[in-house]
Write a protein that binds this DNA or RNA. Sequence first.
DNA 1: TGCTAACCGAGACGGTACGTCGCGTCTTGTT
DNA 2: AACAAGACGCGACGTACCGTCTCGGTTAGCA
Lengths: 194, 194, 194, 194
Amino acid sequence: MSRQPDPNRRSEQARQAILSAAADLCAEVGFAATTVEAIAARAGVGKQTIYRWWPSKAAVLLEHMQRARETSADFPDTGDIRADLLAQTTAVEALFASHSGAIWRGLLIAAQSDDIAADGVRALLEKAVTDATKRLSTAQVNGELRADADLDMAVEIIYGPLYHHWLLRARPVPNGYMKEILNVVFDGLNPRRH
Amino acid sequence: MSRQPDPNRRSEQARQAILSAAADLCAEVGFAATTVEAIAARAGVGKQTIYRWWPSKAAVLLEHMQRARETSADFPDTGDIRADLLAQTTAVEALFASHSGAIWRGLLIAAQSDDIAADGVRALLEKAVTDATKRLSTAQVNGELRADADLDMAVEIIYGPLYHHWLLRARPVPNGYMKEILNVVFDGLNPRRH
Amino acid sequence: MSRQPDPNRRSEQARQAILSAAADLCAEVGFAATTVEAIAARAGVGKQTIYRWWPSKAAVLLEHMQRARETSADFPDTGDIRADLLAQTTAVEALFASHSGAIWRGLLIAAQSDDIAADGVRALLEKAVTDATKRLSTAQVNGELRADADLDMAVEIIYGPLYHHWLLRARPVPNGYMKEILNVVFDGLNPRRH
Amino acid sequence: MSRQPDPNRRSEQARQAILSAAADLCAEVGFAATTVEAIAARAGVGKQTIYRWWPSKAAVLLEHMQRARETSADFPDTGDIRADLLAQTTAVEALFASHSGAIWRGLLIAAQSDDIAADGVRALLEKAVTDATKRLSTAQVNGELRADADLDMAVEIIYGPLYHHWLLRARPVPNGYMKEILNVVFDGLNPRRH
DNA sequence: TGCTAACCGAGACGGTACGTCGCGTCTTGTT
DNA sequence: AACAAGACGCGACGTACCGTCTCGGTTAGCA
């Protein structure tokens, strides 16, 4: 039976140093080379201090990601769903291109083999999906979307291409990418009727 | 100066044993636990025989994937683009659910930190994108698609959601998923005009 | 720049287990089969723990030998040089026949290709030579030896035959061997004058 | 059941190349680094050609040593045993300092763990001992040696110091070393009576 | 003179051990 | 008691040689 550490005695300094070191390393040398040993060395911290508070390196990066997420704004609601989606996805694009992008990429990888990472990633992802779904729901009520649209699926149609491009094809997202995607998503690929 | 071995003297038996062992292990214990050591043991082969012909375990699995790909049929062309896309994406769904799905998942992960894997994955992915783009191009010429549609982007709109669902949200793809996605992709999310 | 570990944090338990395992293995399966891997397995220790403190298996066995040497008594000095030499060489005979003999044999081998082993073996050998030389020097002063005898050479005449017999000819040392050798060494091979 | 190769079809060229390569390597990089692969590469020969005719690298070097031995002169017999021993041991000193010395050193090592090498070394060693014993026997009959001297032991007293110095203490044998040794061996360490 | 069996070079093969890296745990003072 | 430091048992890494095996290509002897 493992001992639970006392959060009150926790060193905030060490916590910050670890989170920063992990994030910096992930951005500089990539997720695979961001080992617990390297984080500890860079943070000037004992390995035990990491393992005491986080179950794995993915958990550290996850906390970093969650904090970044918390500070980010809510899903915008100007009344214009396409404008709001464009604003939101543009923010996501910016995140992908930033240091946090490297971390998020690492977490998505870790989630494939690490259950804890998978849970955290799922939570973040579901939160994002839920936020988007809510906004889409409002739009649907307002008649901006087809009434029979499956909104969870709609979210995947909107964000799927972006992930496909950035994560799988490993390409920088070009300017106007999401604008174009949203055009298709809303207007469809069918030839316009006139 | 490193020597590369003579492919003529290569043992086809060992090759097959290695590819099979790697694929089986990946399906049974996952990509992370599919170590070169385990592959060698399972294939009844020396580790050196693996390293002689492949630079990493990802390269082994990549070859397995490439072979699977080669044997798969071309993109269908019945003249009905939506039916063809549905057939093709259904085949992809089946692949994702099969043993090859576990391997492909592992390769997509490996590609994030292993340049060789990244090159191989890119090649497979670009091949798939090109095939789809060609079929879409025919459809576009035939007036089945908007003339101004960016086809590379269209491919991402079609496959992106599937990957988002299967890989990132780690959910089994439900029946009719791609049918629904294709409905949106072609008809758009906008309310229908009567 | 390589880091050397902190001896204060060293596990005495692991140290003893390694030294014992190495000695036992050397006695049981011989020096060649006494691999670092086998020592680690037998000692219930990680290979790294061996490599952390010793540069090679020879160094481990060397330490074992040095410890055995430290606990052994000094060169005897009863005033009778021939009796003292007989006592000392008899002790060496016993060592050769014991487990330590197998280890010492292995070290003499290793010293031929491993510089670290060579240094250690040299040190042990020179210590033994020096001890013997000192005792012989006393005897020389007391008139028990020719005044012009080269004592370092005398030591080799005394111990050389023993090593020749045991190590090179690989024969068990028969009873009374050294007594006979000492007879010749002191009285010479020349016919006795009456 | 293993096939015996036909000695008539043996390539003398390969034989010589292997023997030379092995000897050169042993002299240049030492016995430990003289691997079968290195010998084969240097001799421009397949590994199988070595294994077909010799059971191990030690056997190759043994053959080299045996050939060197055959060409060497017999034990000299001028009627003066001390002069003859000095001549013979001087020749041995020269051998130790030559390339053959490195090989012989390697064989003495190999003999400790390789039964085939041990047999070969034993044979060479016993041959040398027998030769020396015979010469000593003649001297004993002639009254040059004490009648009760054990001649096998006498051989070890003569050669033991030389091996101790060269092999174990790994020191070059200084000029006049054996002359001095022989003085002690014949005259003894006892103070001279006057 | 053409056949065929054996040796040849080359080097791939199944293995064993190497020495290193990072894991996650445990231990030792310090603060 | 949490901390930094880092030693520990462990498992996999990628490499070096081992001794065996399989390939063509020469190279004898026998037909």
